[in-house]
Design a protein around this nucleic acid. Structure first.
Lengths: 109, 109
DNA sequence: CCGATACATTCCGATACACGCATCCACTGC
DNA sequence: GCAGTGGATGCGTGTATCGGAATGTATCGG
């Protein structure tokens, strides 16, 4: 059950949350983190993104509470904050799968 | 289980999908449609958005497959395309609730 | 202390997007 | 056909944001 009343402030917060996912680069990062925490340089290699750019995206994801940061000496290790993160992605991907299948069916007739 | 391989094209599609939710105005529309389908003018009144602006947001939501359109004479009726839509919002809202509660707990100590 | 490494931050140009205004299009009723 | 209503679309403007280059900051080894 969602909040009965949606204040503008709440709407903005929810929107920001979604905005964190609304970027191919950031989704790429999230999928790279599926298998476990990675350092920034490992993420650079895994995603092909530039280091500065990636770092900024990580700040966004962290500010949105999507990923967690753990510092160890020179390295920063990032990880998915929560199982719900992938649940969200999979919900969207699942819908996509169903839709493309439906479209293929429609084309096949 | 999500697709094993995330191609750039797929990432872009998923990102666009999330982008549809990543705007306070559009979230407002979705919440207004919780109770059932509405015409554009009804949505104008329900949300306080300008007609032109609202119309554009509706195009975005429709293109993303989030809402359905039904034309009846002069009127266009929009409705949530699918129960998953609200599931998505509630997933995010639920996380928010838990986090704010945790934060309050932390402040209360 | 000095250089090197791993990230973060700032500055910049280019693009994208939201919103309002005006206009255009589709349909209805006279 | 004509006027009126409900929606959609095009244009202009301000703002946000992505991405890269350069710079700054913190930590480790020597």
């Amino acid at each position: 059950m969602p909040p009965a009343r949606m204040t503008p402030a709440l709407l903005a917060i929810v929107a920001d949350r979604f905005k964190a996912f609304a970027e191919p680069a950031r989704l790429q990062v999230l999928y790279a983190l599926r298998s476990g925490e990675l350092s920034v340089s490992e993420l650079v290699e895994a995603t092909g993104l530039g280091q500065a750019n990636l770092s900024k995206h990580l700040q966004v994801l962290h500010a949105a509470g999507v990923v967690s940061r753990r510092k160890d000496g020179l390295f920063s290790y990032y990880a998915l904050a929560d199982g719900d993160v992938l649940k969200l992605c999979d919900l969207v991907c699942g819908r996509l799968d169903r839709e493309t299948k439906q479209r293929q069916k429609a084309l096949a007739r």
